[in-house]
Amino acid sequence: MSDDHTHVQEFFGARAADWDARFPDDGPAYEAAVSDVGLRPGDRVLDAGCGTGRALPPLKTAVGASGVVVGADLTWAMLETAVRAGRDRDGRLLLTDVAALPLRSESLDAVFAAGLVAHLPNPAENLRELARVVRPGGILALFHPIGRAALAARQGRQLTPEDLRAESNLGPLLADSGWDMTSYADEDARFLALAVRRV
């Protein structure tokens, strides 16, 4: 396992048990973001880096009983917290690296990824792997329940021009990875970039 993976597992493993309690008001932001993805009943969607599974209930509501929701995360403790919260009823949980997904090519209609981009060790390569599992014309949603400036302030750091989530960086990164960015919102109350899998 790479040092990047070990760092991510240690960081989130240590915080898994109280993660939801630290951010108790994020539910409506998740629901609104999932609504903006435009999922339809019967769709197949991956929550990449699902953590404690906060997106799984709104994703399942969006795709309905005929749809499929899969939550993938690298950190066992996060998935355990998702199970304790009962969110495994809304999606199948996979302990796996989003850089090497055990899913067939073009088997999904969409990928929802909350807070994932900043933790990807090889962003272009990892976003290409997400593109691999999504059908042409499918959707990628990169979400965070607060915007870049608010998140930087919370973490006691400054925004830099190198920030991957800056629109000027994210658009070309997605384009190089098989995605075309279709919308970008970076507001205090949320960050949401949507992209379409190139045909």
Results as ranks from 00 to 15, higher is better:
178 G>Y: 09
110 A>T: 02
120 L>E: 08
164 L>W: 14
148 R>N: 09
98 V>M: 07
159 L>V: 15
137 G>Y: 09
96 T>W: 01
134 V>F: 07
139 I>E: 15
142 L>R: 10
90 D>H: 14
169 N>V: 04
163 D>T: 04
150 A>F: 05
56 L>R: 06
62 A>L: 10
163 D>N: 10
94 L>D: 01
70 V>Y: 10
97 D>N: 06
153 A>T: 13
78 M>L: 06
172 P>T: 12
115 G>R: 04
71 G>Y: 01
107 S>C: 00
109 D>F: 07
150 A>K: 03
60 K>R: 15
61 T>I: 10
115 G>K: 05
120 L>C: 11
132 R>F: 05
85 A>S: 08
77 A>C: 03
74 L>R: 06
145 P>C: 11
84 R>T: 07
134 V>H: 05
83 V>N: 05
115 G>C: 09
80 E>Q: 15
104 R>D: 14
144 H>P: 07
167 E>C: 06
112 F>A: 03
91 G>F: 08
91 G>M: 07
178 G>C: 01
85 A>I: 00
98 V>D: 05
64 G>T: 13
75 T>A: 02
108 L>S: 02
165 R>K: 05
132 R>Y: 01
156 G>E: 11
143 F>A: 06
177 S>Y: 09
76 W>Q: 12
165 R>Q: 11
82 A>K: 00
88 D>R: 06
130 L>E: 07
173 L>W: 12
130 L>R: 03
131 A>F: 01
123 P>E: 14
139 I>Y: 04
65 A>F: 11
144 H>C: 11
71 G>I: 03
120 L>R: 08
121 P>H: 02
96 T>L: 04
96 T>R: 05
91 G>A: 08
171 G>H: 07
100 A>I: 00
142 L>E: 10
92 R>C: 00
89 R>M: 11
105 S>A: 13
96 T>V: 10
174 L>H: 06
87 R>K: 10
153 A>R: 15
116 L>N: 11
87 R>H: 13
173 L>M: 12
75 T>H: 01
148 R>L: 15
57 P>Q: 02
113 A>Q: 13
65 A>S: 15
145 P>Q: 14
65 A>E: 15
167 E>D: 09
168 S>W: 14
111 V>C: 05
103 L>G: 00
145 P>G: 11
120 L>H: 12
98 V>F: 03
57 P>I: 09
102 P>T: 00
